[in-house]
Design a protein around this nucleic acid. Structure first.
Lengths: 201, 201
DNA sequence: GTCCCGATATATAGATTCGATATATCGAAC
DNA sequence: GTTCGATATATCGAATCTATATATCGGGAC
C-alpha cells in the first residue's frame, strides 16, 4: 500500500523522504497519516527490491539529502500494484490511493475499480442497515447516532461513485457522431488529460 | 485503542473472542476492521495486565470457548483510556471508538471531546482547502475530485458534531423553569438514558 | 554576530496491528 | 453420512504506528 503511494509520487518527480511525507499528507492525509516509521523502512524495502534508487547519495558533502528516483522495475511494480491487486482494491485506503493515481489506468480498468468499490460500499451500507435494525432498541443513542452518521456518509460516497462512473462511461462511449451534436458539448470535463497509451499502466 | 474497545464491550457483558469480533465489526466495522491477529494478542495482553479474566476456562471438557470478563482493574483501565487519553482522542478511530462509549462519560467530558474533535476536523478542512488551492492547476482531475469529496465529507462531519454539541449543551443547561415551558417539550431526545453518577467514568 | 527557533531532514526501537493461514467443532441441509 | 457454512481459537511474519533522537538550515531577535 505505502509502496504503491510512494512509487506513484516518485513517478511524477524524484524526491527525498521528507518531501514524500509532505506530499502524502497533502493528498491522502485526510484518511491516512503516514509516519516516518513507515516511510523510511518502506523506502529501504523498495530500494532493496530495486524499485527505487538514490541519486546524489552521500557525496555532495554536507548535503544529507537522499533523493529517490523510480526505476524501470519500479514502474513495473507500480503497474502491478495499481491494477492487478484486486483483493484490497475496494477497501478504504486501497481504493483512495488507487483513485489518486487513476490517470495511469485505462478507462475500462477505472470503471472496473469504481464498480468494485461501489459494490463494497453497498455491502457496508446493507450491513449497517441490518445492524441498525437489530440494535435500535438494545444499544444507546450514541452508538445509534454513530451508525446512522456512517450510513449517511457511506450513501454519500456511493452517490459520488455513481457520478464518477457516469462520467467515465460517457468518456468511454464511442465518440458521438458529429452530425446531430452540434450544440451538445459535454458539460462534464474529462477528469484527466488524455494520456498516451504507453504512459498508462 | 483495541484495548479500549474490548473493555467497553466486555463492560456490557462477558463474551468470548469470536463474539467480540462480531460486535466490533457491527459497531465499528465501517471504519475499523479488527482482525484475529490483533484481537487475540490484545486479549492476552489485557489478561496479563489483570484487566480481564477468563471464566469457564479449559475445564468444561469439550468446550473450547474462552469467555472473558472485565475485572475491577479493567474498569479502571477503561476509564483511563476513555477519558484522560487526550492525545489521539480527536483522530478518526480514537474519536469514533470513544464516541461509541459516550454514555459512560460525564456531559462535560462529552462536550470537551466533541469540541476537540471539531477543532481537529476544522484543521483538516483548512488543510484540504489550502492544498486544493495550491494544487488546482498542478495535479490531475482525479486527485482534485478526491480532495473535494473528502473536504465535503469533513464538512459534513463537522455539521454532525455541531448538532451533537448543541444537543449536549441543551441537556447540560440548567433545567428550564417549569413556568413558561408548559408546551415546550424538547424535540431532541437525550441520546442516552441517564446513568447514575457511579456508573460513569 | 550570535543565539534561538521552527522547518527541514533522516533514522531507529519497540509495540501494535494486519493479512494470511491452520485447525477443529457444531448443526443443518442434502 | 457427509459436505458446508458458521462458530471458535491461535499464530507467524510483515507492515505500520508511536515516540524519540539527532543534526542542519535559514531567519529574526537581541
Amino acid at each position: 500500500m505505502l509502496e504503491l503511494a510512494i512509487l506513484g509520487l516518485l513517478k511524477e518527480r524524484s524526491m527525498h523522504g521528507y518531501q514524500l511525507k509532505k506530499r502524502l499528507a497533502e493528498t491522502l492525509g485526510s484518511f491516512w497519516q503516514v509516519s516516518y516509521g513507515s516511510l523510511y523502512p518502506a523506502l529501504r524495502r523498495l530500494q532493496r527490491e530495486g524499485a527505487v534508487e538514490m541519486i546524489f547519495p552521500k557525496e555532495d558533502v554536507g548535503r544529507r539529502k537522499n533523493v529517490y528516483r523510480i526505476t524501470e522495475q519500479g514502474e513495473a511494480l507500480f503497474r502491478d500494484l495499481l491494477d492487478s491487486a484486486g483483493e484490497d482494491a475496494a477497501a478504504d485506503n486501497g481504493f483512495s490511493v488507487r483513485f489518486a493515481f487513476f490517470k495511469y489506468l485505462k478507462p475500462e480498468t477505472r470503471i472496473r475499480l469504481l464498480e468494485r468499490r461501489r459494490a463494497f460500499l453497498q455491502r457496508r451500507s446493507s450491513d449497517l442497515e441490518r445492524s441498525l435494525a437489530s440494535y435500535r432498541e438494545r444499544v444507546d443513542g450514541y452508538t445509534i447516532s454513530l451508525m446512522n452518521h456512517q450510513l449517511a456518509a457511506t450513501e454519500n460516497d456511493i452517490r459520488w461513485l455513481d457520478e464518477l462512473i457516469r462520467t467515465e462511461e460517457r468518456q468511454a462511449a464511442p465518440a458521438p457522431r458529429r452530425r446531430r451534436t452540434r450544440i451538445a458539448r459535454s458539460v462534464t470535463e474529462p477528469l484527466t488529460d488524455p494520456l498516451s497509451e504507453k504512459e498508462r499502466a
